[in-house]
Amino acid sequence: MNIILNNNQESFEGDRLTVNEILKAKKFSFKMLVIRINGKLVKKDEYDTAIVNDGDKLDVIHLVSGG
Protein backbone atom coordinates (compact mmCIF):
# COMPACT_ATOMS: atom_id res chain seq x y z
CA MET A 1 0.00 0.00 0.00
CA ASN A 2 1.01 3.60 -0.51
CA ILE A 3 0.65 6.24 2.20
CA ILE A 4 1.86 9.78 2.77
CA LEU A 5 4.25 9.63 5.72
CA ASN A 6 5.34 13.07 6.95
CA ASN A 7 4.48 14.59 3.57
CA ASN A 8 6.44 11.93 1.61
CA GLN A 9 4.98 9.12 -0.49
CA GLU A 10 5.98 5.73 1.00
CA SER A 11 5.18 2.12 0.08
CA PHE A 12 4.63 -0.77 2.52
CA GLU A 13 3.89 -4.48 2.14
CA GLY A 14 0.23 -5.27 2.91
CA ASP A 15 -3.14 -3.50 2.56
CA ARG A 16 -3.59 -2.29 6.11
CA LEU A 17 -1.05 -1.99 8.89
CA THR A 18 -1.21 -0.86 12.49
CA VAL A 19 0.71 2.24 13.55
CA ASN A 20 3.15 0.02 15.46
CA GLU A 21 3.79 -2.13 12.37
CA ILE A 22 4.68 0.98 10.39
CA LEU A 23 6.93 2.32 13.18
CA LYS A 24 8.71 -1.07 13.19
CA ALA A 25 9.04 -1.19 9.41
CA LYS A 26 10.53 2.30 9.45
CA LYS A 27 12.77 1.32 12.40
CA PHE A 28 11.46 4.30 14.41
CA SER A 29 12.54 3.58 17.98
CA PHE A 30 11.77 7.01 19.42
CA LYS A 31 10.05 7.20 22.79
CA MET A 32 8.09 10.43 22.72
CA LEU A 33 5.89 10.58 19.64
CA VAL A 34 2.84 12.48 18.49
CA ILE A 35 1.00 10.59 15.75
CA ARG A 36 -1.90 11.55 13.50
CA ILE A 37 -3.77 9.55 10.87
CA ASN A 38 -5.49 11.89 8.39
CA GLY A 39 -5.13 14.69 10.92
CA LYS A 40 -6.73 12.75 13.79
CA LEU A 41 -4.68 12.16 16.93
CA VAL A 42 -3.69 8.57 17.75
CA LYS A 43 -2.81 8.07 21.42
CA LYS A 44 0.04 5.81 22.50
CA ASP A 45 -2.26 3.05 23.81
CA GLU A 46 -3.83 2.85 20.34
CA TYR A 47 -0.60 2.27 18.37
CA ASP A 48 -1.25 -1.51 18.32
CA THR A 49 -4.85 -1.16 17.14
CA ALA A 50 -5.05 2.01 15.03
CA ILE A 51 -5.09 1.03 11.35
CA VAL A 52 -3.38 2.84 8.51
CA ASN A 53 -4.99 2.14 5.13
CA ASP A 54 -3.82 2.66 1.58
CA GLY A 55 -3.92 6.37 0.72
CA ASP A 56 -3.88 7.54 4.33
CA LYS A 57 -1.83 10.47 5.52
CA LEU A 58 0.31 9.54 8.54
CA ASP A 59 2.19 12.17 10.54
CA VAL A 60 4.84 11.16 13.06
CA ILE A 61 6.39 13.91 15.17
CA HIS A 62 9.34 12.86 17.33
CA LEU A 63 9.71 15.07 20.39
CA VAL A 64 13.03 15.60 22.15
CA SER A 65 13.77 17.62 25.28
CA GLY A 66 15.42 21.02 25.13
CA GLY A 67 14.20 24.57 25.17
Binding site: K31, M32, L33, V34, L41, K43, I61, L63, V64, S65, G66, G67
Partner: peptide, 11 residues
Protein backbone atom coordinates in the same frame (compact mmCIF):
# COMPACT_ATOMS: atom_id res chain seq x y z
CA UNK B 1 11.92 22.28 27.84
CA UNK B 2 10.77 18.70 28.44
CA UNK B 3 9.59 16.37 25.68
CA UNK B 4 6.68 15.06 27.78
CA UNK B 5 5.35 18.62 28.22
CA UNK B 6 5.71 19.25 24.49
CA UNK B 7 3.69 16.10 23.85
CA UNK B 8 0.85 17.19 26.15
CA UNK B 9 0.59 20.55 24.39
CA UNK B 10 0.73 19.12 20.86
CA UNK B 11 -1.82 16.40 21.64
Amino acid sequence: DRADQKKVLLE
